[in-house]
């Protein structure tokens, strides 16, 4: 009897969203360390571990799908997957179209990387990925914006001398700077952009959002989220 009750309680807690028993997690797979495809061809990274843990805590069966960044929101709202967990910053514009959970990564900072110390990031040529909040920021800063389709090309542009600096997410740039052996370096001030990173869900999926929200809260409370952040982003990362 007790067992039956427990199962029923679990089903109730899981709520309406579990009418569909598999939750499809949409990610990009090209944004290390948040998410990337590992050598064996599987989705890996901070968000993979985080997402699997959240699903386990919420009692959901989850499946990972990768999709192109440009169409990641249109595909969510038309129901091709149920969540976006792809290093997506919470912004007002996005809030108008989709819902976010609370942030699982503190407000992010973006940074400039150049090939020499003397670069003036406010007047030089700065590369950024097309249609990102970083591109919008550079356009407003007065620097000459050079937009590339992929983050890879924005960094390559600095190496080739096409751009004086690249403006992108700090955590994306850090491993590249470390691996470049002094060729690339951070310049200028870091800029806080966006309101932290959260999971995106359809506005009509409030029950599912509450489930993930609760799971994130529990991970924040018992310190597992902080441990995960340090594991993937290093000691200097902001924690909760």
């Amino acid at each position: 009897m007790k067992l039956v009750l427990a199962t029923a309680a679990l089903a109730l807690a899981a709520g309406a969203a579990t009418a569909q028993d598999v939750i499809r997690m949409g990610t990009e797979g090209a944004y290390p360390p948040y998410n990337f495809i590992d050598d064996s061809g599987e989705v890996a990274g901070f968000e993979r571990e985080l997402g699997d843990e959240l699903c386990a805590r919420a009692g959901l069966t989850c499946e990972w799908v990768t999709t192109d960044w440009d169409s990641i929101i249109p595909n969510l709202v038309s129901g091709n997957y149920d969540t976006i967990i792809a290093g997506m910053s919470i912004t007002d514009e996005r809030e108008e179209v989709i819902d976010f959970t609370q942030d699982y990564y503190p407000p992010t900072e973006s940074a400039y990387v150049a090939a020499s110390e003397e670069v003036d990031v406010l007047s030089g040529v700065v590369s950024a990925q097309t249609a990102t909040i970083q591109a919008g920021h550079v356009a407003e800063s007065g620097a000459a914006l050079l937009e590339f389709a992929t983050p890879e090309e924005t960094v390559a542009a600095v190496r080739d001398g096409e751009a004086d600096a690249v403006f992108a997410d700090y955590d994306y740039l850090l491993p590249l700077v470390e691996a470049s052996g002094g060729e690339l370096m951070f310049v200028g001030e870091r800029v806080p952009l966006g309101g932290g990173v959260g999971m995106g869900l359809r506005e009509s999926d409030a029950a599912l959002r509450d489930q993930f929200d609760a799971a994130i809260t529990s991970m924040k409370e018992d310190g597992t989220l902080n441990a995960l952040l340090v594991e993937w982003f290093g000691e200097q990362v902001g924690t909760y």
Binding site: P32, D39, E152, R159, A179
Partner: peptide, 21 residues
Amino acid sequence: ARELGGTKTPQFTDYPHGDWR
């Protein structure tokens, strides 16, 4: 081709390499 050719840092792969696109 884009994904495999892009720069890979040792942190995320056993086969790090530069821009091989």
